[in-house]
Nucleic acid binder design. Structure first.
Lengths: 155, 155
DNA sequence: AGTCAGATATTGCGCCATCAAGCATCGATA
DNA sequence: TATCGATGCTTGATGGCGCAATATCTGACT
């Protein structure tokens, strides 16, 4: 008789696939970016999100939300990136509690360089994918992302 | 004129989607498992992989490989789980360098309980997915996972 | 048998993220 | 205007993970 344990639930396996796929990609791409562009992958995530935002800046809170870190973690992350000269803190004129993290010229430079190597590595990783595969992956991921963002907050 | 910067490369966006989808799911499911089953998500990953393995055990190295950690991290992770009574170390009879991590009866108990709540939460998260959506996601993820495991090692 | 390169697991150290607490500020309400 | 809960960010303490070095062991080659 087959085991009736819930550890064989197909959804668990699906999520396991997602975890493994992401972890492996992240490790490979992350170490490649570190060695080829001298930029930790988190820094790249910060910079690209700042570059794509209105005014090329984001509040600490929304940045924390976008890169899935606590505001505490973002405070110190931005500290380090500020020392490196890639971002700067800008006060908010209408609310003295908030401070924006904005990308600097040096940040733009390193971001562009890193994006080139990142795109090249991604093409290496997804080399076996046809355009149809990629769009299928995109839509599937978008559905997951949407479902995930609908989830209630941790409290 | 449109910006010619490589930061708008569609592959970068795809990977960003993957990162965001995974991070959000992982955070939500992880904190839920922690609060509802008293089990950190990494512990669950370890236990389910041990339970599914030949002899319900795995060498430290292959375990490290499966959960995307260094052997160093696995050493201490298994330390903690051993103190909790969920796993045990077993010497290898044919090679005295390797030690197996094996799941205990207590580990099985907590794994089964956690799997129930995990499956329930997964069903909550993927509630809007049709069976077709799920199989599409599965095949797409499997292709990514396969591509990722083909990547050369970090050296 | 003797030697040595490679493999396996563990340990010391430092970095980085979370958690909890604290501080300053805002908006609403009396 | 005065008060008070909520919000945004920062800081101190704690814990976990990776990197590099170490110890032990294996397998192959001489």
């Amino acid at each position: 008789m087959p085991s009736a344990t819930p550890i064989d639930d197909p959804l668990i396996t699906t999520f396991g696939r997602l975890a493994e796929a992401y972890s492996r990609l992240e490790q490979w791409l992350g170490s490649a970016m570190e060695s080829e562009a001298g930029l930790p992958h988190v820094w790249f995530e910060v910079l690209i999100r700042l570059a794509r935002s209105e005014g090329e800046q984001l509040t600490m809170s929304s940045l924390a939300d976008q890169i899935a870190l606590t505001t505490s973690g973002v405070t110190r992350l931005v500290d380090r990136m500020q020392v490196a000269g890639y971002v700067e803190r800008r006060p908010c004129p209408t609310d003295r509690r908030v401070s924006y993290a904005g990308i600097t010229a040096a940040g733009h430079d390193v971001l562009d360089r890193a994006a080139v190597v990142h795109a090249r590595n991604l093409r290496k990783a997804f080399g076996s994918f046809t355009p149809q595969d990629l769009t299928a992956l995109d839509t599937a991921l978008d559905r997951v992302r949407e479902a995930a963002s609908r989830l209630p907050r941790q409290p």
